[in-house]
Design a protein around this nucleic acid. Structure first.
Lengths: 188, 188
DNA sequence: TCCAGTTTTCTAGCATCGCTAGGATTGCTA
DNA sequence: TAGCAATCCTAGCGATGCTAGAAAACTGGA
């Protein structure tokens, strides 16, 4: 029986290696460079092995990477929770800047990951809660959930626009201050 | 000489037909469905003709479509200018909802279009000015340009997150109200 | 009107992509 | 050790963006 255990362990390890290789390659050269052939070469197996781990193919691998990302984002936000809105906003931007390809997988691509629904994965809810926790105290009359969504949207929008070179680099620090100023205080 | 004039006119007309066909197909089936072969079939010419109009290939066609989009967005924002921050914000969201594929081409894809730089196309500056015009009066002590960028980021972020089914549909109207409430008034 | 020369257009093909069927190889069980 | 089952790989399909070189159409001068 230990043989069987070792085999399943090897299998799960290989699945993780696939995702890890995909993330590494994506951060280095972008998701377009993550092809099934290169991925297979990196893990030193043939292409079809990928599909035995992820029947959904490349999209499923990206989704798996995105889920890992939500876990890491949730941790980063939780660690900054005691530094309030400014701290959490900074941690969010820092995460997006440190792992741009992963951030893309989480939000821009892989849109079949459901959010704000019953079957939303737990890590995604935890990430959202990391924002909610610091927004809720300053919500005032406004609905805290809605305000969190708007706060999140502002951070996300600034990140994607900035990445597309659509914002002035000179205003970069000022934008963070302004988001915090507009969302970190009671709005009534 | 009129022969030559007719020829160049036909050429530019065909170039516009290419972009029009790309936009139509993209709105109907998404940008992935916009292949050079289908595009060539739609304009009733062979594939290489596309490259005589747009040497950059598919990316260049999408960029041309995006530029058209910036012109249309600028018009929409200008028309809503007298309705203040709320009106412009509403017009922006309306534009993004009415032409989702075009909006993607403008912001998510085609990121080689430079913004906030010297060689930024005029239509892009006009679109930005459509936001700036209503934000500037309520900037107070804050830098109006930076505030406009944050306002823009909030709108853009909400659009992209909403499109990826990452926000609660029930809060949809509330989010617009909240953005306006947080950005439509002086923040000092 | 006809014939070069130029411009425009098409046919055919390359490399690469995601993905999969079917055979070969390996490991497990009796 | 023989047979079975799981695993893996080779080979290939259709489709993608893009391009070289042949074919066709148009141009302007005798």
């Amino acid at each position: 029986m230990t043989q069987r255990q070792r085999r399943v362990r090897d299998r799960t390890e290989r699945g993780q290696r696939i995702v890890a290789a995909a993330r590494e390659l994506a951060e280095a050269e972008g998701w377009d460079a993550v092809t099934t052939r290169r991925l297979a070469a990196l893990i030193e197996y043939s292409q079809p092995v990928l599909y035995s781990h992820f029947p959904g193919g490349k999209d499923a691998i990206m989704t798996a990477a995105a889920l890992e990302g939500f876990g890491e984002l949730a941790s980063a936000l939780a660690a900054a929770r005691d530094r309030g809105v400014a701290g959490v906003a900074g941690a969010y931007l820092e995460f997006a800047e440190a792992k741009p390809a992963l951030y893309d997988a989480m939000f821009t691509l892989a849109s079949e990951l459901p959010f704000a629904q019953d079957d939303t994965p737990a890590v995604m809810k935890e990430a959202f809660d990391g924002l909610f926790a610091v927004v809720e105290p300053v919500a005032g009359d406004e609905d805290a959930g809605t305000l969190t969504e708007v706060f999140w949207g502002a951070l996300h929008g600034l990140i994607t626009l900035d990445r597309g070179h659509r914002l002035s680099p000179a205003h970069r620090a000022g934008r963070l201050e302004l988001v915090v100023a507009r969302f970190g205080a009671r709005g009534d």
